[in-house]
Simulated assay, not measured.
Amino acid sequence: MKASKLIATAALSFLAVAAAQAETYEGVHPLTSSASRSEVATQAVATARAGNVYAEGASAGVQTFESKADRSQVRAGAVAKAHDPFGSLDRRAFYRDEVPAAYKKPKVSFTRQAGL
């Protein structure tokens, strides 16, 4: 029993070794640039002196913003949105992207309640 397991393990090992093939190394890719060394050096110096062109927002400091809307209009819109009970509902948060009917009920109730 042990000998058969040992032979089976050895056979599987040889199969695995035979199946594994290493990728061949073809060296460094050939140079395909048409620019000369002096042109590349000139471009490198110009790029180094230009600074970090991708850091416009991070290093710009405080930026001013001029709004076209009136302050009272913005405040009135914010108050209306804050008092809207359905203002924060996003249909994508519900099953099949549809707001349930329970959320669409009118605010006003036409049923009478007993007074105390």
Results as ranks from 00 to 15, higher is better:
A82E: 05
T64C: 04
D90C: 06
S88H: 15
D70R: 04
Q73R: 04
F86H: 08
K68L: 07
Q63C: 03
A76L: 08
F65L: 11
R75N: 11
F65M: 09
D84C: 00
V79I: 14
H83N: 15
P85T: 03
S72P: 00
V79R: 09
A78E: 10
E66Y: 04
G77H: 10
E66F: 07
G87L: 04
G61H: 09
R91D: 08
V79H: 02
A69G: 02
G61Y: 06
R75E: 14
D90V: 05
V79A: 11
A69M: 07
V79E: 13
T64K: 09
H83V: 02
A82N: 05
Q63S: 06
T64Q: 11
R75S: 10
K68C: 02
G87A: 08
F86N: 14
A78L: 15
K81C: 03
S88C: 05
A60W: 07
T64L: 13
A58Q: 14
G61V: 04
F86Q: 12
G61W: 08
A60P: 01
V62D: 14
A58D: 10
D84L: 00
H83P: 00
V74N: 01
V74P: 00
V79Y: 02
A80M: 06
S67G: 08
S59D: 13
T64I: 09
E66W: 06
K81N: 11
V74S: 01
E66G: 06
